Structure formats: structure tokens, C-alpha cells
Simulated scan of single mutants.
Amino acid sequence: MKKQITITLSTATLLLGTFGLNAHATPAATSSPLHVAQTTATASFSDQELIAYAKASQKVNDISAQYAPKIETAASEAEQRILLQQADQDMVRAVRSTDLSVEKFNTITAAVQAHPTLIEKITKLVN
């Protein structure tokens, strides 16, 4: 089974909205972080997981920033899809390099989106 990153809502909006792709055009956009957030609303994470998440998030954001201009200037929708797939693969590798599973990263992302106070906790841990 292929692992995919659930990118943040703002990044998803950027990638899908700016580039005119349909939600079903990119595998990264098919996961529903809101559904995960509802099922994990009370999930707790260790400090180590949250620190790893912060590192992974930065790497994912860097990859997104690297690919955004390439996707924007792609000659076709097919080329955009290829670039999105490459970005997704790079994001998966980046998350795994922090010793988080893709599933855990996505779960924490959903929890952060549902519970903004979790961002404060992560910020305190990494500062």
C-alpha cells in the first residue's frame, strides 16, 4: 500500500487552487485530515513525536515551496500531476527521515488543525 502525506490545508489549497487541479487529480489531496481529526480529537502524542513532527513539517513545507513554482509553470496538467507525485514521494522520505511514520505525521497534522493549542505545545518544545 502506497503511503502518502496529508499536506496542510493551506498547501493543499495552494496546490489545487492555484494550479486548477481537481481534488481527485492528486493522491496527496485524497486523504481527509478533518475525518482523521474527528477520530483522533483526544489523541495524545509524546514530546519526542511532537519534536519529530516539527522537524518533518519544516521539511514538508520546504519541499512544497521548492515544487510550487515548478508546478505553477508546468506546461500541462499531466506534468503538474507528475510533479505533485514527485513532491509527495519527497515528502514521504522527509517524514520518514525524522523517524515518524506517514500515518503518525498525518494524525498529528489532523490534530494540530483541530486543536490549535497543540501548535503552542510544539512551539514550546522546539524553542
Rank of each mutant, 00 (worst) to 15 (best):
T30S: 09
T109C: 09
L16G: 09
L125C: 11
T18S: 07
N106G: 10
E72D: 09
P27D: 02
K3W: 00
T6I: 15
I63G: 06
K124A: 14
K2C: 01
S44C: 07
F105D: 03
A54G: 05
K70S: 12
E103P: 04
T107A: 14
V36A: 14
K55T: 13
S76F: 03
Y53N: 06
Q58K: 15
T6A: 15
Q85L: 10
L34C: 06
Q4Y: 01
A111D: 01
D88N: 15
H115Y: 05
T13K: 13
L15V: 13
L118C: 08
A114T: 07
Q4V: 08
A74V: 12
D47I: 09
Q113N: 11
A87F: 03
H24C: 08
K70E: 12
K70C: 04
A28D: 01
T117D: 11
R93M: 04
A75W: 01
K2N: 10
I119F: 08
S64I: 03
K3D: 00
S46W: 00
S97P: 11
E49W: 06
E103S: 12
I5S: 04
A114E: 00
A87Q: 12
A41W: 02
T117Y: 05
D90W: 01
T117H: 10
E79Y: 03
K55W: 01
I7Q: 05
L15Q: 01
Y53M: 09
G17I: 14
P27W: 00
Y67E: 01
I108Y: 02
A87N: 02
T39G: 02
I122P: 02
P27E: 03
Q66K: 15
P69Q: 06
A23C: 09
I63N: 05
L100M: 10
P69T: 02
A65H: 10
Q113W: 05
I122R: 05
L84I: 13
H24M: 09
V126H: 03
Q89I: 09
D88W: 00
S31I: 14
S57C: 07
A114L: 04
A29V: 12
M1L: 11
Q80K: 15
L9K: 14
L34P: 00
I122E: 02
D99F: 09
T39I: 11
P33G: 08
I108P: 07
S57W: 06
A94E: 02
N61P: 03
G20N: 13
D62M: 09
A41S: 12
A74K: 13
V60D: 00
I119E: 08
A56H: 06
L118K: 07
A52P: 01
L21I: 14
Q48H: 10
N61V: 14
E120T: 13
T123Y: 05
Q66M: 09
I7V: 15
P33T: 12
A65F: 04
A28T: 06
A43G: 05
F19P: 01
T117F: 04
